[in-house]
């Protein structure tokens, strides 16, 4: 940057002098100040644009020498240390940031993530509790605490947090809906019905994507609602329905519904399809598992 400054400034001054004829010393001073200000504004952005994480940490450290009481700088450097899994350094910076500016609530979100990532889950929840008491509608905050609560096996609390996170989503994605359903299923008072209701909310918002509908089909089978399971399966993309795995699942559902002929036809189709695969694919663990599952189902049908 200094090299650039040294090279650029005389050229700028000469250009201006050439264009305007004579130039007073005062003009020079003014121009110099303008150019310097401009370059100073540009300089940090240039440094960051070219810098890796170490360089950015170094840059923040340099800035902190000049501004030792800048909480935002400590917070920013702490987040970089966290990204680099330098937990102690990150915590020290985050603590200092909050000491300097107690109003900087984001420090507690960063702390919560740090504790979660480093395996201190209870501490993570404590930090996130503090954060969410001040930022009551923060999607990421709720989702992070939900995941921490799952690890602590506080499933009901996790469900409540997922509900808050989902409520704050502007564009729904499958992730939180699926995790919420999994938390419900692990809660001592959770039910398949409640999990299904949550998945259906996701399916309503996003569509019958496999990450939600696949789990829903599994749950319908678990509660012996085979008709509902089949209806859901038929909403999956045709591309997916035609795969050996989902054909086998379809057959198992048809069997439970007493539609034996259909089930048999589906199964023989699956087995033919697996047989027609190249040996390398046919003999794969996945396909061998499916073949065994299909043959077992066929055996049950024959009984």
């Amino acid at each position: 940057m200094m090299m650039m400054l040294r090279t650029l400034l005389p050229r700028v001054l000469c250009t201006v002098r050439g264009a305007r004829g004579d130039t007073t010393h005062r003009d020079h001073g003014l121009l110099f100040a303008c150019v310097l200000s401009l370059l100073c504004c540009v300089a940090p952005a240039q440094v960051y644009a070219h810098a890796g994480i170490h360089e950015r940490i170094d840059e923040y450290s340099r800035q902190l020498l000049a501004h030792p009481n800048d909480a935002a700088l400590y917070y920013a450097r702490g987040e970089l240390y966290r990204a680099h899994q330098k937990w102690d350094l990150a915590l020290a910076d985050l603590d200092r940031a909050q000491q300097l500016d107690p109003a900087l609530a984001e420090v507690d979100l960063a702390r919560g993530k740090l504790w979660l990532e480093s395996g201190s889950v209870k501490r993570a929840v404590t930090a996130l509790d503090r954060y969410l008491s001040r930022r009551t509608a923060h999607v990421d905050g709720y989702a992070t605490r939900a995941r921490a609560n799952v690890l602590l096996r506080h499933f009901r609390r996790a469900v409540a947090d997922y509900d808050q996170a989902i409520a704050g989503l502007k564009n729904a994605t499958p992730e939180y809906y699926r995790e919420r359903a999994q938390a419900v299923l692990q809660a001592s008072d959770g039910s398949v019905e409640e999990a299904l209701a949550g998945l259906d909310a996701g399916i309503h918002a996003i569509g019958p994507v496999v990450s939600l509908q696949g789990l829903a089909i599994e749950l319908e089978q678990r509660r012996s609602a085979y008709g509902a399971a089949l209806r859901r399966l038929e909403q999956l993309p045709p591309l997916l329905q035609s795969t050996p795995k989902w054909q086998v699942i379809r057959c198992e559902i048809l069997h439970h519904l007493g539609r034996i002929q259909e089930a048999r036809a589906v199964l023989s189709g699956v087995l033919d399809r697996i047989s027609a695969m190249p040996a390398s694919r046919r003999k794969s663990t996945v396909m061998q598992g499916l073949r065994m599952r299909a043959e077992a189902a066929l055996g049950q049908l024959e009984r």
Binding site: T173, R178, S211, G214, L215, L240
Partner: peptide
């Protein structure tokens, strides 16, 4: 592996 992304990946 039980998350939405890896479930989708397998499918």
């Amino acid at each position: 592996t039980s998350g939405a992304m890896m479930t989708w990946l397998e499918a």
